[in-house]
Design a binder for these strands. Sequence first.
DNA 1: TTCCCTTCTGAATACGTATGTAATCCATTG
DNA 2: CAATGGATTACATACGTATTCAGAAGGGAA
Lengths: 342, 342
Amino acid sequence: MKGKATSFDIAYEAGVSQSTVSRALRNSPLVSEKTKSRIKAIAKELNYTVDKNASSLRSQTSTTLALLLFEDPTSDDSLVNPFFLSMLGSITRECGLLGYDLLVSFQELDADWHSVFKDSNKADGLILLGYGNYLDYESKLRELVNHGTHFVRWGAETKSIETCSIGCDNFHGGFQITEHLIKLGRKNLAFVGLVDDGAPEFMARYQGFCKALTKNGLSTNSALQEDAVNTEEAGFEATLKLLDSGKPLDAIVVASDLMATGVLNALENKGLKVPQDIAIVGFDDIPVARYTKPALTTCRQDSAAAGVLLVDKLVELIKGNEASSSFMKTKLIVRDSCGAKL
Amino acid sequence: MKGKATSFDIAYEAGVSQSTVSRALRNSPLVSEKTKSRIKAIAKELNYTVDKNASSLRSQTSTTLALLLFEDPTSDDSLVNPFFLSMLGSITRECGLLGYDLLVSFQELDADWHSVFKDSNKADGLILLGYGNYLDYESKLRELVNHGTHFVRWGAETKSIETCSIGCDNFHGGFQITEHLIKLGRKNLAFVGLVDDGAPEFMARYQGFCKALTKNGLSTNSALQEDAVNTEEAGFEATLKLLDSGKPLDAIVVASDLMATGVLNALENKGLKVPQDIAIVGFDDIPVARYTKPALTTCRQDSAAAGVLLVDKLVELIKGNEASSSFMKTKLIVRDSCGAKL
DNA sequence: TTCCCTTCTGAATACGTATGTAATCCATTG
DNA sequence: CAATGGATTACATACGTATTCAGAAGGGAA
């Protein structure tokens, strides 16, 4: 036998036709159990594996999902947002469980990724992961919808299109961590993170922050908010600006753990004690959150559950079923940076 | 136009044959520039994309690489070794740069992953990532070699087969961090990590550790070594055992940062100060290493460079060229846990 | 027996592309 | 003018599988 075995080789060995082999291996009820087991035995003996390309071409379905990771445009070239990275594990595993292959690729938000996967039949569906500029983004999502491409997204609900999104309740999460600080007696709270239409997740967290303030009789002092993109450095810089303003400040709500690490560094550089002088809370519960000094109080998004959900919903869509958006509750993780344990 | 555009549609529009379209889009010199540009324009207009499956089937090449991640059999279900995760970024990027798709999948070391990708034509080559039990592993590698499957591995060189491996100089790294501790005046050093034929990377680090001891006139006291699999918990447990032994101890060389986080926790639980009472060094420089308390002195493996190298070498192999193994120098990263900054 | 019905198998074809081989065109040359 | 040859293009086929349709074999009922 030269080269790899094909279904014809098995057919020859078994003395049947290629079509019978194909049916037998796919467990078609049209084939008798006897011939099925005979064919399967021969297939095993010949180390036969179905040719993925031929199979996909013929059946027009690839049993492959594509995971598109959008990088923060500002981030270091070698860095992947740790929060998304932690989702990768459960996505991969769930794909395996459901019999799908997973294609992973990084994409620039502004590239024409939306057209690449449309007709190439590389994948049956797309998982979109990443925060991004939603203005341009939504128009691309619309193209996908128009084209009938199946996809699911991590993130906030889109305003103008109905898509299947998995996310967490960012508003409630923002509220949760902020009220936690207030109940610990903090009165002068600041928010670090991009407050902008293009970043709805952060926006929602900010709105939760504001809600907690007003509900507890604190004024929403607009000066105590500092924009920052989602990197450690931006958190660092934003903190310096806050401190420079000279306004009273005893707590900072940071819109992501990644930024929060930068915030902690900045405060340490300035000789301020966390949480004694200033309390800090983050968002995401990325792996490093347990290890910062002090350990970061944060708002956990269950990334493992999210990954599973993304895959499951996408597969439902591919099967032609409905799949609704779903937003998970966040969980307050109390560690040392908020001062609760003082 | 119903459904997706095919090369026949373009051919019809352009008034040429399908073969000319195929050649034009692949920039064959057989097609005149004039028709080429005409065809390309039409292709663009029709939003044409080459069907991946048909193309791969015909050309018997998928321009896809498969990344196989082997989990530590003991690890938490949802956890991926952070060191390998950090390699993923550069692997993905390099694949994109070279025009390859990347298929990612988790595999149990003892499953028959080696046969799944062989003949299915899912991928042109394999990247194997993970520490593992090398006894069983090597026999599977041999099967791959016999079958002519292209693959590269991260890890130590294999003893019985010649494969293209990318790794770091674990022996030198182990030597480096150990001598660093000795030069800081530590005399009673322990090693935490699996010392076993099945884990050659850790074994090499241990041998480097021993070499540093003997070179500096310290005896290799075999009692001061404690096996531990590559998890935080195992590092924790191993440390308790070391302390229970009651032997003098002022420094621990931990074979991975992941374990080292557990070691630090254990010492803190026991009320021991790092680095004053006991100095710690780790290995890998995973992201959390900067954030532990105290920040972990460790031995950096350049995971980004490794990822690029893995992809490049694999592509060379696929092209039919030779690709040699390559072992990178490690770099000592001095932080606070070793006591150099006291 | 005949006829039909069930159960299984085979022949033929399509999926969409890439490529070896043959054909055409056009200009040049002896 | 015929022949040659270079430059393009067209034709035909193969990649390996999944599925439609048609056919064969066997059994039971009338």
